[in-house]
Amino acid sequence: MAQISLQNLRKIYPNGFEAVQPTNFDIADGEFVVLVGPSGCGKSTLLRMVAGLEDITEGSLSINGRQVNNVDPADRDIAMVFQNYALYPHMTVRKNIGYGLKNRKTAPAEIEAKVQEAAKMLNLVEYLDRKPSQLSGGQRQRVAMGRAVVRDPALFLFDEPLSNLDAKLRHQMRIEIKSLQRRLGVTSIYVTHDQVEAMTMADRIIVLNGGQIEQIGTPAEIYHAPASTFVASFMGAPPMNLVEGRLDTGQVMIGDGIALGNAEGTGPVTVGIRPEDVELNDQGSLMFTVDLVEELGAHRLLHGRLAGQPFTVHVGKEVVVGAGDAAVNIKPDSIRLFDVETGAAR
């Protein structure tokens, strides 16, 4: 078990590119933290610095209060699951799982016992003598998990472990990984570009963009109170609607003087509204023009325009609507305001 602390951690590549700007955060014992962001945002570099696979340019990384900047990956008491699993192709599942223990001079009988235990936990017992090439994608993923679990590490690191699986299997593995982590109570850092994974698995989410942290918070906080337009549009599918508006005489206005609610201040502002915070209502005060209905079974997405700007509305399956104009209402207190220049929430 471990708590992790990053202080002003920074990565500059030899070519001068700053992949990670000075970063600070702490992870509590047993916590499941997800680093999420688009590709190239520095999330993998950050994870690899924690693993010791990438040199730390500046700052300090400590695990359980011990600074580990210059400690070899093998001595950091971590385990890592890779995107392509990185199984040793010429070794059986048994040897793959036990290789790390063997290198730590564990007694063969003890290795066997631990491998059996891990295999049982992951439903791999009957595959122990197979080679990775004889396994399905999901089974390989489990072997990679087994290799991490068997070592009983202080910290799990996951580098996009599910992105090579198909949608159905990904959903299943998401639940398995999360429940396994709960059961073992091991502190975990999980990197993904998939915001659904981040929302469903994380105790706490760290949203990264362009090498710096945009927001840290629980999934609910991130979703309901995004700290910037970037977070607002990155988290949630479909993303939050962002509409150009302005503040005038204590009112939030869009289009030709349509008032959405009360707010202090003056000047232009970006207005954020989640698609499910809009309801169709014949008495509604706003006119929404539906261009296209996206049928999703359990619900529908209406794509169209509000006050001349692209806008999406999320409605339940019981609401039947076609293309054309519809009156809508926006739920009170659901409006988020962002600075036009910086994109920061205000």
Binding site: A51, G52, L53, D72, P73, A74, I78, A79, M80, F82, Q83, N84, Y85, A86, L87, Y88, Y99, G100, N103, R104, R147
Partner: peptide
């Protein structure tokens, strides 16, 4: 990733 996994495995 193979060499990375091996390094974490203590090789």
């Amino acid at each position: 990733e193979l060499v990375e996994a091996a390094r974490i495995d203590g090789a």
